[in-house]
Design a protein around this nucleic acid. Structure first.
Lengths: 391, 391
DNA sequence: AGGCATGATTTGATCGTTCAAAATGGCCGA
DNA sequence: TCGGCCATTTTGAACGATCAAATCATGCCT
C-alpha cells in the first residue's frame, strides 16, 4: 500500500508545528513568507495531501457534490446528461470538488437518498436535473436550507420555491431554428412537441409560436403534441403534412421527434420523385461547410476556460452515389439537443451549451458554499444552431 | 440544517454505551438479542446513520469507488459508458458503496489523479475502462497493490499484468452476427473494423474471421480496417462493395462504422432500383417482432437482481409510406454496441450486457475488498444480437 | 525601562467512529 | 465462599485534520 503522509510528518520534516502546516495551506496570509515557502517545499517533497475525512470531521465540509444518474429513456437524449456530467466533473475538480453519483426512481426515493447521503457522506451540495412542476425535491431541500442548484428552471412560480438554477433558453433555441427556416424562405413552419404541462416542452413550443407571430404568420393547426419517440414523431409528422396546411418545414422539441419527422420527409420525397434533393438519407453533406454553428443572438455565455472536448471534426466526403442531380428541397426538419443521432443522420439541431451550463452550476454552488454573494442566482444560457443537411 | 444524530445520541436514548450501538451495526453476534433489537429500534426512531468520515478515519475505508468519465469521441458510443455508469452506481449502492467521478486526458494524468484521490478521498477501489495495450494505469495500480477491476481485458500478456477484469466477448458477438447472416443465406460477408493493434478491434474481427473459417468460407479481401467514424465507415463500405467480391452483408466493429455502411447500402439500393426493399431508410419495421434479442450461446450471465431500466418497448408502426412493394434485400449490415443511433435508424447490432458487466465489477471488487476469495478473477460475458431491419 | 499592540507560531481540544482492552455480572464447580 | 470462565457491556485511545486560545517574539510609544 502507499505510505501515508500526515500533517505531522510534514511538520516534523519542516521543523514546525501541525498548525503552521495547516495554515500554509488554508490561511497563507498568517504565515511568514519564508516559513510558508519552506513548508510548501516540504509538502511538495513528501507528496502530502490533506486527508479529506479528517478535514471533513473538523470542518463539516466534504467537498462532495452529489448528482443523480439515470438510465435515460430511449437513450437518444441520454448523451445530454452524459456530456453535462462530464463538464460538471471537470468544473468541480477545478474548484476542488468531486462528483458523487446516486440513482433514484422518482422524487420520493430521491429524497430518501438525500437523507441517506446527508447522514453518511454529507455532500456539500446537490445538483438537480430534470426539474418539473411541483418538484418535491426542491421544496424538501429548501425547507432544510440545503445548498443545491437545479439544471432546469423551477417550472412553477410558487412563492417559496425560489432557488438557484441554471438553464438553457429553449424558447430562444426554437426561435433561432424558426428564424433560420424563415430566412431560408419557408413560410409554413410546423412544430412537433410534447403534450402541454411539461415546462421544457411548453417553453420550446413558445419560442416557435412567438417567432411566427413576430413575423405576422399564423400558427393555427401547425402544431402537434405527442409523447417523445421516433415513431410518434413520424406519426405526428405524417399527420401534420397530410393536413393540407402546405407545411414545408418542421421544428421539433427533440431529436427523437425530429428523426421520426426526417424519416417521413425523406419517404415522401422519394415517393414524389424528389429523392435526389438530398444526397442520400443519413449521409453527410459533401461540403465541409455543412456543419456550422452560427450565433443565435448576443452570446451571454460566461468564459469558463478551454473545453477540452475532442472534436471529430466535420466529416469530409468523397463520391456520393446518392447525389445524382440537384432538386428542390423536401420538408426541412430541425431537432433539439444536437445528440449523436443528429450528427449521425445529418439533422440540423439546437445545441445546448452543456459545458458552460455545468460550469455555471459549479460557480453558483461554490459561491453559495463560500457564503459570499447572494444565495439565490439564475443563469440562462443561449443555445446555438448546428446546421446540417436536414435544414 | 438537518439536526445531526451521532452514535452518542443513540447510546443515550437507548441507555447503552457507544460501543454497543456500534456493535449492533457492525458485529451483531456479540450483542445480546434483546439489546440488539432495542438499539435497532432507537436507531430507526432517531434516523441515525453512521458518519462516513469518522468511520473512514478509524477504519481506513471510504466505501467509495472511483471511475473516470470522459467526453466520448463522436458520442455515438458514448452511451455505452453512460449505461455502464448507471449500472455501476446501482450495483455499488446495493453493496454499500458510492461512485466517485474524475476526468483525465490520458494515462499519465489519470495516474496523477490516482495519487491525488488516494491522498485525499481515499477511494477503496478503482474501475478502469478503455484498457489498452501497455496500459500504464494497470501496472501502476498493481505495483502498489491497490484494488481495482478493469472493464475490458488486459490486451497484453505481460507476466506481471494479472488483475481482475470483466469483459464482454466481442468475438462471440461478431461470430453471432456472422452466423445470423449465414443463416439468412448470405455467403459473402465482409467486415468493417479498425486498424490492427487495438485489442477490442482485433477481437471483434477475429470472431467474424473464425466463423467464416468454421463454415469453410474464404475471408480474403473481405475485410477493411479504418478509423472509427460514420464517414470512414461509408468510404470503407463503398470500397469493399465496389471491389467486385459480391459482398452481400457487412459485420461492423461499431455502430458508427455500421451507420456509414448502412447509408451506402441504402444509396446503392435506391440507385439500382431496389429502393423498396426497406420501408424507408431510418424507419422501424412495421412488425412488432422486429426487435428481438435471441440468445447467442450458453448464457453465463450471473443473476444480478432486476434491472430497472425502463424499456420504451418496440415501436409500433402504422402506415409506412416507403414500403411500396417487397423487393430483394440490399446489403445487410450489423453494428456493434446497440447504441441509441442503432435503435433510431433500425440497425441490427450486437448488444453488450452492460448492467451485468457493472454488477460483475462490483461483485469482484467487494469480494477483493472483503479479502475473501481469490484476489484475481475474470468474468467474460456473452453479448446478444438485437435484430432490426438492417439484417 | 516597562507596558502594550502586533505578528508568528504553538498547544489543547474536538469532530464521530471503531479498535483494543478492561470491567461487570452471572453461573458453576471446588 | 471463592476463583475462574464466559457472555456482555463499557471505557480509553486513536484516526488526522482544524478551531480557538495560549504562548512567544518583536518593535514602538511613553
Amino acid at each position: 500500500m502507499a505510505e501515508k503522509v500526515t500533517i505531522m510528518d510534514v511538520a516534523r520534516a519542516a521543523g514546525v508545528s501541525r498548525q503552521t502546516v495547516s495554515n500554509t495551506l488554508n490561511s497563507p496570509q498568517v504565515v511568514r513568507e519564508e516559513t510558508r515557502r519552506h513548508v510548501l517545499e516540504v509538502i511538495q517533497r513528501l507528496g502530502y495531501r490533506a486527508n479529506q475525512a479528517a478535514r471533513q470531521m473538523r470542518t463539516g465540509r466534504s467537498r462532495l457534490i452529489a448528482i443523480r444518474i439515470d438510465p435515460g429513456g430511449d437513450g437518444i437524449s441520454g448523451s445530454v446528461l452524459d456530456t453535462f456530467l462530464h463538464g460538471l466533473t471537470e468544473s468541480a475538480a477545478r474548484a476542488g470538488y468531486r462528483i458523487l453519483l446516486y440513482t433514484a426512481a422518482d422524487d420520493r426515493s430521491e429524497i430518501a437518498t438525500f437523507e441517506d447521503l446527508l447522514g453518511s457522506y454529507e455532500p456539500d451540495a446537490f445538483v438537480l436535473t430534470a426539474t418539473h412542476h411541483d418538484d418535491l425535491r426542491t421544496s424538501w431541500l429548501l425547507e432544510r436550507r440545503l445548498p443545491f442548484v437545479a439544471f432546469g428552471r423551477p417550472w412553477s412560480d410558487l412563492p417559496g420555491a425560489r432557488h438557484s438554477w441554471v438553464d438553457v433558453d429553449g424558447a430562444a433555441g426554437t426561435a433561432a431554428a424558426t428564424r433560420h427556416l424563415l430566412a431560408a424562405g419557408h413560410r409554413r413552419i410546423g412544430f412537433l412537441g410534447w403534450p402541454p404541462g411539461s415546462g421544457v416542452g411548453d417553453d420550446r413550443r413558445a419560442g416557435w409560436a412567438r417567432t411566427l407571430a413576430e413575423h405576422g404568420l399564423p400558427a393555427d393547426g401547425l402544431s402537434r403534441a405527442v409523447e417523445d419517440g421516433v415513431e410518434s414523431g413520424a406519426r405526428a409528422a405524417r399527420d401534420l403534412l397530410a393536413a393540407g396546411g402546405e407545411v414545408t418545414a418542421l421544428v421539433c422539441a427533440s431529436d427523437s421527434l425530429a428523426l421520426g419527422a426526417l424519416n417521413v420527409a425523406d419517404a415522401l420525397a422519394s415517393e414524389t420523385g424528389h429523392l435526389t434533393g438530398r444526397p442520400a438519407p443519413g449521409t453527410p453533406l459533401p461540403t465541409t461547410a455543412s456543419e456550422t454553428t452560427p450565433q443565435t443572438g448576443p452570446e451571454t455565455t460566461p468564459q469558463t476556460g478551454p473545453e477540452t472536448t475532442p472534436q471529430t471534426g466535420p466529416e469530409t466526403a468523397s463520391g456520393m452515389p446518392g447525389a445524382v442531380s440537384p432538386g428542390r428541397r423536401p420538408v426541412a426538419v430541425i431537432g433539439f439537443d444536437d445528440t449523436p443521432v443528429a450528427r449521425a443522420v445529418g439533422l440540423t439541431s439546437v445545441r445546448q451549451p452543456l459545458g458552460e451550463a455545468a460550469a455555471a452550476c459549479v460557480a453558483l454552488l461554490t459561491r453559495a458554499l463560500g457564503s459570499a454573494g447572494p444565495p439565490v442566482e439564475h443563469v440562462l444560457l443561449e443555445p446555438s444552431l448546428t446546421l446540417r443537411r436536414s435544414a
